[in-house]
Computed example of a mutant assay.
Amino acid sequence: MNFNPKKKTSNFILLIAGFAIVSLILWNTNSFFRKFKEEERYKMEIWATAQSELLQSSATTELGNLTLKVFQSNTSTPMILVNKDGSIRVNNMPQEILQEKGEIEKIMKKFASENKPIIIEDNQEQLATLYYGNSEVLNKLKYYPIALLLIILLFGTVIYFLFKTNKASEQNKLWAGMAKETAHQIGTPLSSLLGWNEMLKTENINPDITIEIEKDISRLQTITERFSKIGSLPKLEEHDIVEETQKAYDYLRLRSSKLIQFSFDSKIKKMPVLLNQSLYNWTIENLVKNGIDAMKGKGSISIEIVPEGNHVNILVSDTGHGIPKNDFHTIFNPGFTSKKRGWGLGLSLVKRIVEEYHKGRVKVLSSSKEGTIMQISLKTNT
C-alpha cells in the first residue's frame, strides 16, 4: 500500500494531463473532420451549379472552361445524379450499379444519411437532385479517432504492464531482502540457544529435555536456511525422494493433532532425484498443513509416491472440503487464500520451489467435497 501523498498527487496530475491530451487530440480531429466535410460540401455545391448550367444549355452551346474544369476536377467523391425525368447518372462509381435498381436505392439512402442531398434548380424549377457520399479521404479521416484511441489504449496497456511488472519485481526483492534479514536475525539467538543447551547437558537434569531442545534448535536452523535461500538459486544435490519425503512426513505426523490420521505409501523403495532438502521438505510441509487447515484439524492425510516413466509423482491427499474447479490455478497466485487469516503465500512458495528451482510441476490432481489430491511431479536422476 502506498502512503506517499506526493506520489499520489503526481499520479493524479499525470492522469488528468493524459486525459486532457487525449481530449484535445479528439476535439482537434473532430474539428478538422467537420471543416473538411464543409469544404467538400462547398465543392459539391459548385459542381451542382456547373451541372445546372449543363442542364440548361442546348446541344449547340459550348460550356465554359471553368465549368469543364469543375467537372474534370472532381474524381474522388462518389455521386448519384437523379434528373427530373427519373434518369440516373453515377460519377466516380462503377457503372454496373445502374443495372441493380435495389442496390442504387440503398446507396442513395446511405448518401442521404451522410450528406444532405443538393437540389439543382433554375428559377424555382427543380432540374435534378444530387446525392453524394463521403470521399475516400473523408472516410479514412472518420475512423482516425478510433485508430488513435486504440493506439493510445495499446500504449497505455503496455505502460501499465511494464509498471506492474516492475512493481512486482520490487516487491519480490523486498520480500527476499526481508526473508534474508529474518534469517540473519534468527542466527544470533540461535547460536546462544546452542550454547545454553550445552550448559544444560552438564547439569544434572533429564537428558530427554536437552534432546527435545536440540530437535527444536535443529528445526530453527532448518527454517533459517529456508529463509536465507529465498531470492537466490539453491544448490540441488542427488537425494532419495522416498527418504526425504518420509522425513517430512514423520516430522509432521509426530507434531500434529491426534485427530489427524496419517498414512504413507511408496510404490518404490528408492528413487534418486536432484533436490534441495530444505526447500523440498518445506514444500511437503506446506501441502500437508494446507490439507490439515482444509479439514479443520480433523481427518486423514496420506502421502503416496508413484513412479511414472522418467518422473516420480508425490501425491498429498486430504479429506477436506475441496477446492472449486475454477480456483485450481489461482490458488497458486501470491496473496490468494480462502482463510480468514493468512497471507496466501504457502502455495505460491510451493509452486516457485517445485517449478522454478526443481524444474518440476505442481497441480491440483483432483478435488471434490470428499477431499483434494495435490500432485508434485519431479524428474528422476536415473
Rank of each mutant, 00 (worst) to 15 (best):
N4Q: 07
P5F: 09
K8G: 01
S10F: 14
F12N: 08
I13V: 15
I13Y: 02
A17R: 00
F19A: 15
F19D: 00
S23I: 07
Y42Q: 12
M44K: 01
I46Q: 14
I46F: 01
Q51F: 03
N65V: 12
V70G: 00
F71R: 06
F71E: 05
S73R: 11
T77L: 01
M79N: 03
K84R: 15
G86E: 12
R89H: 14
V90S: 11
N91V: 05
N92R: 12
N92I: 08
M93V: 04
E96S: 15
I97G: 05
Q99A: 14
E100G: 06
K101A: 15
I104Q: 02
I104T: 09
I104E: 09
M108D: 06
K109D: 13
F111V: 04
A112W: 01
I118M: 10
I120Q: 00
T129D: 03
T129C: 04
L130V: 02
Y131K: 07
Y132D: 03
L138K: 09
L149T: 07
I151H: 05
I152D: 01
I159T: 08
F161M: 08
K164G: 00
N166Q: 10
S169R: 14
G177I: 01
G177T: 11
M178H: 09
M178L: 14
S191Q: 14
L193W: 02
L194W: 01
W196E: 11
E198A: 12
L200A: 06
E203H: 04
N204Y: 01
I205Y: 04
P207D: 09
E214M: 08
E214C: 02
D216W: 07
T224V: 04
S228E: 15
H239P: 00
V242A: 08
V242Y: 03
E243F: 08
T245I: 12
A248R: 06
Y251D: 13
L252W: 00
R253H: 10
R255P: 02
L259I: 00
F262I: 02
F264P: 05
Y280N: 07
E285A: 09
L287G: 04
S300Q: 12
I301H: 04
V312C: 10
N313H: 14
N313W: 06
L315F: 13
S317M: 12
G320A: 07
G322E: 05
P324H: 07
F328S: 06
F332M: 05
P334R: 11
L345E: 11
V350C: 08
K351Y: 06
R361G: 04
V364W: 05
K369L: 11
Q375K: 15
